[in-house]
């Protein structure tokens, strides 16, 4: 069992195995299943992410009319070759926004860690699989890395916007994706932890202020920010840069910030963007 990122790192050193195997073993122990069964359940989660991405419908709009169509616009823009972020990042942006829109439009997604932040991990992972020519098994391993990071955040801070603000949702998703990507690029446990720490540090203090209380504005586009932040954070770690503050302490800081955040900006729609004049006009 592990409670901290540092537990996972220590146990992987002691048992001469890698980060994801510690998470897999703990799941097998906890749920009383074999490691193989656990792996296949995780594979289903990854496959469900891929299906959700493939089933994006460019025509669908949310009930409020605020969400839909942005993924298609970004797709068309990427096709022109004018997106200066390049092919890899352009694709990640596109998949992130598409998944956020699919969620808002009542399509099937994988909450990872939440429905509102469901675009971050699949955007990073599906593009990494394609562009880095990785196997599905490797992607499932990376899912364990993300799950391990997310579990530690859930235990020591929060994954819910209502208790921790958006840092707990998009911030956590970004940290989970960054750690997974570092693993896929050959990073060791320390680099996984640093990637997660960088990603989360960039998201600390983020308010949860959805317009009309809906998982649409600003949630959908924040999936893009979380996914791109995961990419850059993993690259910092892979360059050998160390986080000045260890991942566990960043998570603890996130918890304290979440506690100190006023309730107006914790999913109540009583502050921030939700009370902007345009938001007030839009929601009747």
């Amino acid at each position: 069992m592990y409670h901290l990122i540092s537990d996972i790192i220590r146990q992987s050193e002691e048992n001469e195995c890698v980060f994801w195997e510690i998470v897999q073993q703990a799941d097998a122990d906890e749920r009383g299943v074999s490691k193989e069964e656990s792996f296949e359940t995780m594979r289903k989660m990854y496959q469900a992410m891929r299906e959700a991405d493939e089933h994006y419908d460019p025509k669908v709009r949310s009930a409020s009319g605020m969400a839909g169509g942005a993924g298609q616009l970004l797709h068309e823009y990427n096709e022109t070759g004018e997106n200066i972020c390049g092919d890899f990042v352009g694709k990640v942006m596109e998949k992130a926004i598409k998944m956020g829109e699919s969620n808002a439009c009542m399509h099937r997604i994988v909450a990872a860690p939440t429905a509102g932040s469901c675009g971050v991990i699949p955007a990073v992972f599906l593009v990494a699989e394609e562009m880095l020519h990785l196997s599905e098994d490797q992607m499932v391993e990376a899912m364990y890395v993300s799950a391990g990071i997310g579990s530690v955040i859930a235990e020591n801070a929060s994954l819910a916007g209502a208790s921790g603000g958006c840092q707990a949702e998009i911030g956590s998703a970004s940290a989970m994706a960054a750690g997974g990507l570092a693993y896929l690029q050959g990073g060791d446990a320390g680099q996984i932890a640093d990637a997660a720490a960088f990603a989360l540090k960039n998201m600390l203090g983020l308010a949860c202020d959805p317009v009309g209380g809906l998982v649409e504005v600003p949630c959908i586009k924040r999936n893009v920010a979380g996914a791109v932040n995961a990419l850059t954070s993993a690259q910092l770690a892979m360059a050998g840069i160390k986080s000045a503050i260890p991942a566990d302490e960043v998570i603890d800081a996130m918890r304290r910030i979440g506690n100190e955040m006023p309730s107006n900006i914790k999913e109540t729609s009583l502050g921030g963007l939700a009370t902007s004049p345009t938001a007030q006009k839009r929601i009747v």
Binding site: V23, A26, D27, E30, R31, T41, M42, K44, M45, A48, S62, S102, N103, A104, C105, M106, H107, R108, I109, V110, A111, A112, P113, T114, A115, G116, C118, I121, M143, Y144, S146, A147, G148, G150, S151, A154, E155, L159, M176, L214, V215, E216
Partner: peptide, 17 residues
């Protein structure tokens, strides 16, 4: 803590709650 509450569930959006 079930990790499939962290990565999962597979669900129809938009809100887990």
């Amino acid at each position: 803590m079930n990790i499939f509450d962290v990565v999962g569930p597979v669900m129809v959006g938009p809100s887990s709650s």
